[in-house]
Design a protein around this nucleic acid. Structure first.
Lengths: 196, 196
DNA sequence: CCTACCGATCGGTAGG
DNA sequence: CCTACCGATCGGTAGG
């Protein structure tokens, strides 16, 4: 007989990951104790070890699951063979939406990777570098085809990634503007600039 | 007789703050112990309490000193009564330079304020909001005067602040491009856009 | 999933 | 600026 999951939609592991991401974002990985995480879930701390072998394994799942999502997306875009402007626009939109939708996971991935074991830090940073390099190639191609201004491609990638990743500083007050307006404005700003 | 400071240029307090900022950035506030900080400075942990009354006071100094520097700068710019484009350009350049020059302090201020006591968190976030509001007014004025495109002023401020604050993700590999080229490219990108 | 518990490490103090 | 030390809290285990 098929097991029915406790909440219908989320496994216990996913529930733990979501709550851990929230606490890690709010207090940081180190300052979040297994006891505090357990309390939020209504269980005792040692029970967590039935789902994860260590506190660090929870962090690893958060970081690498999130990285996978971004990596898969950019690979899909590259395969699409669209023109460079559209690919870049799609990437920006994906970043903005993902940040607004899964803020805790993206924030923790962006900042708490420092607490991964050093071997995994290397692995994680290599993945990010590969992602950046793919974006650099897209910008280079766009410049060569005359779609983009002449600019150091690396500068452009850095500005774009900084802008979309830095959205975290604002997320909590997001009610000052509709999310779709914000997304459109960011695309417009990064592609066409602010000056008239 | 005038006391000669140990290093000629930096007081012991400043030395401790610089090393603390470095460690807080690399490992986070919570994961940095007073013992580890003391060891880096070649003293024993209890000796730190001759210079600061608590670990948290060190964090407070880092966060509020850095905030003061940015606040003073934007106030100077507003008083200058320059046109909005130039003010915005100057603010962007200041952020980029400060981030590259005092990376540890800016990074810690941007992320570890979560560990301030709750009253100071409120104070700190209010200062940041005031800073944002000043920038929003500059953009609004620029739109009214026809210097800038029609855009939600708040979106533009958010994109700009995100872009310059997010530079932290990149700083350590800064050798891939000259700092002045990067600064100029960011200004160009944020003001004139990427599309040709 | 729980109770009971361990060794390690933490921020900070006493006293000089 | 040091030695000696404290109470609290941590991640994790044993055993059920």
């Amino acid at each position: 007989m098929a097991r029915i999951k406790p909440t219908g939609n989320f496994s216990k592991q996913e529930l733990i990951l979501a709550k851990a991401a929230l606490l890690f974002r709010k207090s940081g990985y180190t300052a979040t104790s297994m006891r505090a995480l357990a309390e939020e879930l209504g269980i005792e701390a040692p029970s967590l070890y039935n789902h994860f072998s260590s506190k660090n394994e929870i962090l690893q799942k958060i970081c690498f699951n999130t990285a996978d999502i971004f990596n898969n997306n950019i690979n899909r875009e590259i395969i699409s063979k669209e023109n460079c402007s559209l690919i870049l626009e799609n990437l920006i939109r994906f970043h903005v939406r993902k940040m607004l939708k899964d803020f805790d996971f993206v924030y923790v991935s962006d900042h708490e990777w420092r607490h991964l074991p050093s071997q995994l830090v290397t692995d994680y940073l290599n993945q990010r570098k590969t992602y950046e390099d793919k974006m650099v190639k897209i910008v280079e191609k766009g410049i060569a085809k005359g779609e983009f201004k002449k600019i150091y491609p690396y500068s452009a990638v850095l500005t774009i990634l900084s802008a979309v990743r830095g959205l975290e500083t604002w997320q909590k007050r997001k009610r000052r503007i509709f999310e779709t307006d914000l997304e459109n404005d960011i695309v417009k700003h990064l592609l066409y600039g602010l000056k008239k």
